[in-house]
């Protein structure tokens, strides 16, 4: 039983990191109905910025966190401006293809020797590991830092979306672009802002991921990003609490499969669960199944 609770804690740690990435996917999807394939790679850049911040520049980690947040947010906005905006009113699939292109570009560009280089990098996290044992379950201070940071940013995001003018603009645009424009909302700016927030959260996710699993490389974002995306779909894409719920489930599923079935099968089981959930609830767990308009 103690091992089980230990796995729950480990799953929670992974799920919380997924949650930060999944939020970006779900916000972007909610507002422009685009699967932002490059989002996982923005997360990877965040992991590297954190690493560079506290290893080379010797910044205290909260400062490195903010640095990663800002870098990633800016990359997200530039990406939207250059790659997605020209295709905003084209067929959805064209934007998806350019998103795939952007994803490849970030991966291969950062793999070049003068950027991050193609190799795996292992490092020691800036937080000294302290372990508490509560009822036999080991909890590290890194896990506490992750929990507190994620909770704080979730609260901030909630405030931003439901208590500010920008947040209400975001909600309006995600409802209907044209109606939002008629109401005087600057649609382009709101979309840019959504990318700013979503990518910034992915940046934080990257730094925290580095704390928990301090081995990073430039293709880190492919699988992690995909799983976070799957989490967002699982919870109901476009719905913010859904992304968090999906991510927490995803974290548990992955860790439990690795612990009790086989660590090789963790991806397959996660995807199998996704397919089954989609067959039962085609719009995800919290998604509303809207009747088709004719």
């Amino acid at each position: 039983m103690v091992t089980f609770f230990q796995q729950v804690v480990n799953g929670l740690q992974l799920g919380l990191v997924y949650a930060l990435i999944a939020l970006g996917y779900t916000m972007v999807y909610g507002i422009i109905k685009l699967i932002n394939f490059a989002h996982g790679d923005v997360f990877m850049v965040g992991a590297f910025m954190g690493y560079i911040g506290f290893t080379f520049v010797k910044l205290p980690w909260p400062v490195a966190l903010v640095m990663a947040l800002i870098t990633c947010a800016v990359i997200g906005v530039i990406n939207e401006r250059l790659v997605y905006r020209p295709l905003r009113y084209a067929a959805k699939i064209s934007a998806l293809i350019s998103a795939i292109g952007a994803s490849f570009f970030i991966e291969y560009f950062t793999s070049l020797n003068f950027v991050f280089g193609p190799n795996y990098i292992s490092y020691t996290p800036p937080i000294k590991e302290i372990t508490w044992i509560i009822g036999g379950v080991r909890i590290t201070d890194i896990q506490v830092v992750i929990l507190v940071t994620v909770a704080a940013f979730l609260a901030l995001l909630q405030l931003l979306i439901f208590r500010t003018k920008l947040g209400s603009a975001m909600r309006t645009v995600s409802f209907d672009h044209d109606a939002a424009r008629l109401m005087g909302v600057d649609v382009d700016r709101t979309i840019s802002f959504t990318f700013f927030v979503g990518s910034g959260l992915a940046g934080i996710g990257g730094v925290l991921f580095g704390f928990a699993y301090p081995e990073i490389w430039t293709f880190l974002g492919v699988m992690t990003g995909l799983k976070a995306f799957i989490a967002a779909v699982l919870g109901g894409i476009g719905i913010i609490p859904g992304a968090v719920l999906g991510a927490l489930i995803m974290g548990q599923v992955e860790i439990m499969t690795a612990a009790y079935i086989s660590s090789q099968a963790r991806d397959a089981v996660a995807f199998a669960i996704l397919i089954i959930v989609l067959l039962i609830r085609p719009s995800g767990i919290l998604g509303r199944n809207e009747p088709e308009k004719i």
Partner: peptide, 24 residues
């Protein structure tokens, strides 16, 4: 040999440019 790593970058750029010029 140092240029071979550029392949992925060029591949991505070609993809983005083509789809932006010919979205259909």
């Amino acid at each position: 040999p140092s240029f071979i790593n550029l392949r992925g970058v060029l591949y991505a750029l070609i993809l983005i440019v083509v789809i932006i010029l010919r979205p259909q």
